[in-house]
Amino acid sequence: MLVLLPPSETKSEGGDGAPLDLGALSFPELNPVRARVADAVVALAGDLAASLTALGLSDRQVDEVERNAELFGSPTRPALERYTGVLYDAMEVGRFTKAERRRADRRLAVASALFGVVRAGDRIPAYRLSGGTVLPGLGGLRGVWRADLEKTLSTVDDLVVDLRSGAYANLAAIPDAVTVRVVTEDTSGRRKTVSHFNKAYKGKLAAALATTPREPGSTRGLVSVAKAAGMRLEPTDRRAFDLVVEP
């Protein structure tokens, strides 16, 4: 099983790993595109004004541009520890046992505007780049990533659970992936999509799928794992599920 997570705009600082080595990342067939995007990001960082505009940053976020300038020289840490924010906080990775962390590193991957997709244990630096960014010289990232990323993700033999947000789902389609919508249900059975706590619930689901001793290989297995974790996951189509939460 591969659980594909969205990235986060916020990243943790520092790290204890050696600088970025594209050759050490999972899915090495993506490295030519990764190199093109990374080089464009570093080049853009040489122009502060252009960087702030392209990345949608304010004058108070100059440090984000500085991160990009140091992309190939700054320390790295596992992707699962690099990304922060609501979804990753809800996963409570720090509470995983060693065995659970090994499972998580194998089962979890993160969609990325910079790297396409990386596994949870892949070591990456802090950076700033969003799925909707248009990079000078390269253009929109969907056009940059789509062909190669779709080819890579279509060859994953395992069950794929796609928890990506819109901007990252737009980079590449995964026709056979399972998708999850977080909803509430009123007393009449009508369902409404959750927006505010959507990431938190997806984080909890991802943690359950990542750490369960018996890896689910089917949609029925997904439902069972969710149920054991106290979550209600119901099919709405062959590959689409609703995660029903309390309003």
Results as ranks from 00 to 15, higher is better:
A177N: 00
L2F: 07
V3S: 00
A226C: 12
G203I: 09
L22E: 15
E215D: 10
L163R: 03
F27I: 03
V86S: 11
D21N: 12
R103V: 06
R128A: 01
R60E: 11
V37K: 00
R191L: 07
G143A: 01
V62L: 08
F72Y: 15
E234F: 11
M91H: 10
S51P: 01
A206Q: 01
V183D: 14
E246G: 06
A167I: 01
L233T: 11
S51L: 11
V3K: 02
A113W: 01
R128M: 06
G14P: 05
V180G: 09
K98L: 07
R181S: 08
V182Y: 11
A208Y: 05
P216Y: 05
A43W: 06
L80G: 08
D63E: 13
R190F: 11
A79Q: 07
R82A: 08
R34Q: 02
Y83R: 04
T155N: 08
T155L: 06
A99N: 07
R82S: 06
D89N: 03
R181W: 05
D16A: 13
F241W: 11
T212W: 12
A18F: 10
R101A: 05
V117Q: 03
S188N: 12
L159D: 01
M231K: 15
T84F: 06
A207P: 01
R34H: 04
F27W: 04
A24F: 13
L44Y: 11
A169D: 15
K151N: 13
A35P: 05
K227L: 09
K199P: 09
D242M: 09
L138M: 02
P247F: 10
N198G: 05
A99Y: 05
S188R: 07
G139L: 03
T53D: 11
V33W: 01
V117S: 10
K98R: 11
R82Q: 06
